[in-house]
């Protein structure tokens, strides 16, 4: 069979998040949430993944649950010894992501992952975000123990999630990846938790 290109047709992607629903309505919270579910990303796993990515100029975090900024808007998460996600944090690097996916085809011990379509992605900004997380997550995400670059695979509002702290010109922010089918539920749960931080 030919390549089943998960990066295909980026213009036809649609996030299922319904922002018009009452529970999802933005509050006066100082915590801003953005739905980045349709932004391009790719994942690779396998004993050959690290070498494959390195050969394509991707910076490799040294330990699991760490991340690196590769270029201005490309973040690499290392989720285990042999699992990596590459995320375009402003959706400007689609070509690079798609090229990686195509290049991985047929490479031994490199298995492309389905994270583009299996996970929703939210970007959260605001000084109180870490305190909001303490209402929905059992892992301490405060700055002194969860610095920029840190990654936690944990449970957020009872849904499996990957949380990472990143930084860009506008300051620090969190990226949250979670089950795409729970996108509505999770957005509403986070909106509720964020409401008190005005």
């Amino acid at each position: 069979m030919d390549l089943f290109n998960l990066s295909a047709a980026p213009d036809l992607r649609k996030s299922m998040l319904d922002l018009a629903s009452t529970k999802a309505k933005a509050t006066r919270s100082s915590i801003k949430m953005q739905d980045c579910t349709v932004f391009s990303r790719a994942g690779f796993r396998g004993t050959g993944a690290e070498a494959f990515l390195a050969s394509h100029g991707i910076a490799i975090p040294t330990k699991p649950n760490e991340s690196l900024s590769c270029q201005a808007s490309l973040v690499v998460l290392r989720l285990s010894r042999s699992e990596f996600w590459i995320i375009s944090t402003d959706n400007s690097e689609h070509a690079k992501i798609e090229a990686l996916e195509v290049a991985a085809m047929g490479v031994e011990n490199v298995y492309p992952l389905y994270c583009q379509h299996s996970h929703a992605c939210f970007m959260l900004t605001g000084a109180e975000t870490e305190n909001m997380f303490s209402k929905v997550c059992g892992v301490d995400l405060r700055n002194n123990v969860f610095p920029v670059g840190a990654v936690a695979q944990t449970s957020v509002a009872r849904t499996g999630a990957i949380v990472t702290k990143q930084t860009h010109a506008q300051g620090d922010y969190f990226l949250l990846f979670a089950d795409i089918a729970s996108v509505q539920y999770l957005w509403e749960a986070l909106t509720d938790a964020a409401a008190e931080f005005v």
Partner: peptide, 11 residues
């Protein structure tokens, strides 16, 4: 061993 100390409810 991969993720460090976590609530037992994650397991």
């Amino acid at each position: 061993p991969l993720n460090g100390p976590r609530n037992i409810s994650e397991f």
